[in-house]
Amino acid sequence: MASASSNSPTAIQLDAVGKSFGAIKAVSPLTLRIAQGERVALLGPSGSGKTTLLAMIAGTTAPTTGAIALRGKPLAGMRPGRDLAALVGMVHQQFDLVPHLSALNNVLAGRLGQWSAAAAMLSLLWPRDKDRGIAALERVGVAQRAYVRAGRLSGGEQQRVAIARLLLQDPAIILADEPIASLDPTRAEEIIALLAATAQETGKTLVASIHAVSLARRHFTRIAGMRNGAVQFDLPAHQVTNDLLDALYALPGLRDEAQSA
């Protein structure tokens, strides 16, 4: 667990955090510290608990056991709103833009927490903080599409707009739940590189669940492997070996055979 940034302040602290849905254990109690500025890739087969873990850190799912603190502030009892939005933001596989609004208005929605309801309404006609929105779109490389309706953008463009929205929300911690699962390999690498570069340049913490091992190695500082709701390994990216990855993704039957052989 030794990491290059272990002497930086803590961004995310999980203490014995677990989640069960009825009798099903999604995440076994786990303790984890992520320092500010770290870029952590969560690897692991589907159903290993990555999404649940991210949702708990985002504050959208409450853990069954344990406690989470973001930059020293306990997450329990924090309601969705301005304070939580300043701490943590999330991009999803499905981008979650409003398809009928322009890319620019979708990006500016990242500022909704800061605006009054009247300002929010007027912004649809006369975009408010427009310069910041355009700058964010420029940063993610789709400024020329600012006035196109989000529903008419390609998948890669939509994900860029979602990242630009996150830039305006400006949280200290960026979470990404399979952000590239619906993109082709070229687009996927561009998006991961963009997320990693954004986090690096702004000193933000990035935690992303992905399936592409090579991208995890290239763009992240730390890799955590999850299987059946438990962390199997948690190492600096360059120390993750192919054997560890094979064991992580092995089918249960094959793995048992390999162990007994």
Binding site: P80, V98, A109, L112
Partner: peptide
Amino acid sequence: APIRALRTAGASEWRIFWHARLPM
């Protein structure tokens, strides 16, 4: 999904109404 995304971005119900519910 877009409504949840805006809620986690810190927007309250009336802002979500103008920016997501009504346009959709």
